[in-house]
């Protein structure tokens, strides 16, 4: 039986499951959020397998970064067009997320801290951020859009 901190960390990390709570009502963005959930779950699965395949982690990590970048821009362009009052704050939240994911990727590639630990950290941070961001910040712009009768 192993009681190392890594397996304790992964046990605490439930799979992201899409439920209606996450729906913001703009289908393009809801679908993109679902794809992000899947990517993050992929990363979690790779990480939880007995022998972590670092190549697969790398590939999935880059896909997440790439997909996130495009998704953020699509949201931001929409928010800019509809003159969303909290545009700056929303964009800044996205920027901060990019900053954080970049740093994690750099640490991962530089082989820091035993890769299983950093992989667990990555999955935990991504999971937590995306849940919070969708349910609070994305929902807020969707509400503004619907109140003002604007759609994508």
């Amino acid at each position: 039986m192993s009681s190392n901190p890594e397996s304790a960390m992964t046990l605490q990390m439930p799979k992201l499951e899409w439920t209606d709570e996450y729906a913001i009502g703009i289908s393009t963005f809801d679908n993109q959020h679902k794809v992000l959930f899947e990517f993050i779950n992929d990363l979690r699965d790779i990480m939880m397998s007995k022998r972590t395949n670092l190549k697969a982690v790398d590939k999935t990590f880059l896909s997440i970064l790439d997909y996130t970048l495009t998704h953020f821009l699509e949201e931001e362009i929409f928010l800019y067009k509809i003159s969303y009052p909290n545009f700056n704050r929303h964009k800044k939240d996205h920027d901060n997320f990019i900053r954080e994911v970049k740093d994690l990727y750099v640490r991962f590639k530089a082989g820091e801290g035993g890769n299983r630990i950093i992989c667990a950290e990555i999955t935990a941070i991504l999971t937590e951020w995306i849940q919070g961001h969708i349910m609070k910040d994305d929902l807020e712009y969707a509400k503004f859009a619907s109140e003002n009768g604007v759609s994508l």
Partner: peptide
């Protein structure tokens, strides 16, 4: 710089 480039791109597409 990257964040600024993102802003410029948004302005290009959305403005």
């Amino acid at each position: 710089f990257f964040f600024e480039l993102r802003s410029l791109y948004i302005k290009f597409e959305g403005g």
